[in-house]
Computed example of a mutant assay.
Amino acid sequence: MDEPKLHPILNRPNEYAISDFRYHVDREQPSESFIEMTLQKNMDSVTLRFWQPANLKIEEGFPRPTRGMVFYDRSADGLENTKIEVADFESSWGAITFCARGVEIVIAQS
């Protein structure tokens, strides 16, 4: 089986630490639910918004170390609401995993 393609939204997300994690649930319009995650690396910071997240798993130890975080591009898989997968390639403790309909950069600071 081929390795999934990396999503281009952020280069090497495994080098970032999670500094903020929010899950907004919109009960009236579930497609407007999102996860916002702020990631920091040295003086750089980026906030990503993942639309319509599904299958969220947060392992014991979160948010540390999460050093195996990777974003896979799932748009070619043909699933309607799964275009990005947040995974952990190291299977380290504290991993966070989920799929989402899409992702965008909300704030990027250097």
Rank of each mutant, 00 (worst) to 15 (best):
L39Y: 02
F50I: 05
A95V: 03
N14C: 14
D73C: 06
G68E: 02
V103E: 06
L79N: 11
H24K: 15
R49F: 07
R64N: 10
Y16C: 02
S19Q: 10
F50D: 02
F89R: 12
K57A: 09
P65I: 08
S31D: 14
D2R: 15
D73K: 00
L10W: 07
S31K: 14
Y16R: 01
D77K: 03
S45G: 07
E60A: 14
V70M: 11
I58Q: 10
V103N: 07
N81D: 14
V106W: 07
R67G: 15
G78A: 04
I35R: 09
W93L: 11
G102A: 08
R74K: 12
G68P: 00
L10Q: 01
P4E: 03
R49L: 06
S91L: 07
A108F: 09
M1F: 08
M43S: 14
V106S: 01
P8K: 01
Y23T: 09
E32N: 14
P13G: 03
L48Q: 03
D26A: 00
D44K: 14
F71A: 01
H7V: 01
G68S: 05
Q40H: 11
R64W: 09
P65C: 11
Q40A: 13
A87R: 11
A100I: 02
D20P: 08
Q29A: 14
I18Q: 05
E59P: 00
V103K: 01
D20V: 13
I18F: 06
Q52P: 07
F62N: 05
A54C: 12
F34K: 05
F71N: 02
R22H: 12
R64L: 12
F89E: 15
D20G: 13
S91C: 09
T47K: 00
G61R: 02
G78N: 04
A54N: 09
I18E: 04
F50Q: 01
S33D: 03
P30N: 05
I105L: 04
S92P: 05
R101F: 08
L6G: 05
S33G: 05
S19D: 10
H7Y: 12
V103Y: 08
V70E: 03
